[in-house]
Design a protein around this nucleic acid. Structure first.
Length: 412
RNA sequence: CGGGGUGUGGUGUAACGGCUAACAUUCUCGCUUUGGGAGCGAGCGACUCCGGGUUCGAAUCCCGGCACCCCGACCA
């Protein structure tokens, strides 16, 4: 998609809002990607929404690749479903947003999808022939956090992907679980966080010995992990014990302590949900058995925040090409028809280009381009036209070079 | 939820208890300029978060509320 910047109603700011300290929120607001509605609640503006969609598509492809099937559950939740697992009571789950129908019936705004989805799947799973099945869901969820913080890192309303696996038994589950790990690794590599994101062993809670978190190293992180750069794994401080280290074959002296942001979390659910909902199947012998489940979460909006938090410099955001709202930032300096012409050709070629066609000073265009942070900047002025084309520069490079239209189209 | 802090034009800041609440930026208009948020001039824009109180007089002091930020706790 191509777009003229004169059509983009958002505006950049020189100064960070005083009610945000987190780098991700400051930059995303300054560059016009998000709008703060209230603490922990943000609207996605056109540029921000495009990044969300890019990340979503990367995640979708990986989920499809491992056999995931997409659906969408509801935000409104009914009490009875959650009472089956004892997760309706505020004494048990303290971050519910609850509301009521006109007639007084209590409802909740979903904070996760295990209950509704397990309940829903009882309609469709009845035989071993129906298994395994992997279902995923992108949606906004709500958590009444006592303290929202760090911009998009911990919000009260956020966008995430949840996948649940339904398997015949633990062995079958383990096969998928391993594939899911690979898919997660692919996602972080493709979104530019591969180098600084670690598979992390964390508390398994009531479900199993461990859960696996994907932790991205960042000073702004809420978690503390001990990581091995060589082995590409880490241990969450909450389970940093001699026993766990020996389990994993890690020695203390090979681990580095670091703050990190939890960008994903996967773990087996065993029969925690299939049991209360009676999610069973008949095996080959006609015997009823419980479905073995697994959970695979990933915060899309948190990932957006994490990318900005970790991949920005003093001038602004530095988007990885894979998630950038546009690939090319085309700037026209002064009056010239050449820029318009290049824009039209790029558009026809299907390039993802944001064309700054506004009548403002060069300095302003450069400063804004750096702040918005698209991977490539192509300047078209009398000077560059005389030199044979556009001046192309990567966002994170110092050097630039003159290129023709063909080379620009290649970048799309 | 415990502790700390902050609320002033859209944004960022200033103002001893005392003139018509100031400056920068944004925005509008004019001129100039055109390779790093450029210059000059003119304008628009604020019941100083809300409600009480003290005082001749409150943005400023006091009380209550709300909002926001930070630390901690919490975070299948």
């Amino acid at each position: 998609m191509a777009m003229k910047q004169s059509r983009l109603f958002t505006k950049t700011r020189k100064e960070a809002p005083k009610d945000e300290l987190a780098k991700n929120a400051q930059l995303l607001i300054r560059a016009g990607f998000i709008h703060k509605e209230m603490a922990g609640v943000y609207s996605y503006l056109p540029l921000g929404l495009r990044v969300i969609k890019k990340i979503e598509e990367i995640v979708r492809r990986e989920m499809n690749e491992i056999g995931g099937v997409e659906l969408q559950t509801t935000a409104l939740q009914k009490k009875e479903v959650w009472e089956k697992t004892n997760r309706w009571d505020d004494a048990v789950v303290d971050n519910w947003f609850k509301t009521k129908l006109k007639n007084g019936t209590e409802l909740g705004l979903g904070f996760t999808q295990e209950e509704p989805l397990t309940n829903l799947m009882t309609n469709f799973i009845s035989s071993y022939k129906n298994l395994p099945v992997f279902v995923y869901d992108f949606r906004t969820v709500f958590r009444n956090e006592e303290r929202a913080k760090s911009g998009l890192i911990r919000g009260r309303e956020f966008y995430w992907k949840a996948l649940y696996s339904f398997s015949k038994n633990e062995n079958e589950h383990n096969v998928f679980y391993a594939r899911a790990q690979q898919a997660y690794q692919n996602i972080f590599e493709k979104t530019g966080l591969g180098e600084i994101t670690f598979l992390t062993f964390a508390s398994g809670g009531t479900f199993s010995k461990y859960s696996h978190e994907y932790q991205t190293i960042a000073p702004a992180g809420e978690d503390t992990i001990y990581l091995s750069k060589e082995k590409r794994i880490a241990v969450n401080q909450e389970v940093y014990t001699d026993e766990v280290l020996s389990d994993l074959g890690l020695a203390k002296d090979e681990l580095t302590k670091s703050k990190a942001i939890e960008v994903g979390n996967i773990f087996p659910l065993h029969y925690r949900f299939s049991e209360p909902f009676g999610l069973q199947y008949k095996d080959e012998k006609g015997e009823k058995k419980l479905v073995f489940m697994g959970s695979y979460g990933l915060g899309i909006s948190r990932l957006l925040g994490t990318i900005v938090e970790t991949l920005s410099d003093e001038k602004g955001i530095v988007w990885p090409a894979s998630v950038a709202p546009f690939k090319i930032h085309l700037l026209s300096l002064g009056q010239n028809e050449k820029a318009e012409e290049i824009y039209k050709k790029l558009k026809v070629a299907g390039a993802e280009v944001l064309y700054d066609d506004r009548d403002i000073t060069a300095g302003e265009k450069f400063a804004e381009a750096d702040l918005i942070g698209l991977p490539y900047r192509a300047v078209v002025s009398e000077k560059t036209v005389a030199a044979g084309g556009a001046e192309l520069k990567r966002r994170n490079a110092e050097k630039s070079k003159i290129v023709g239209l063909e080379e620009l189209i290649k970048l799309k």
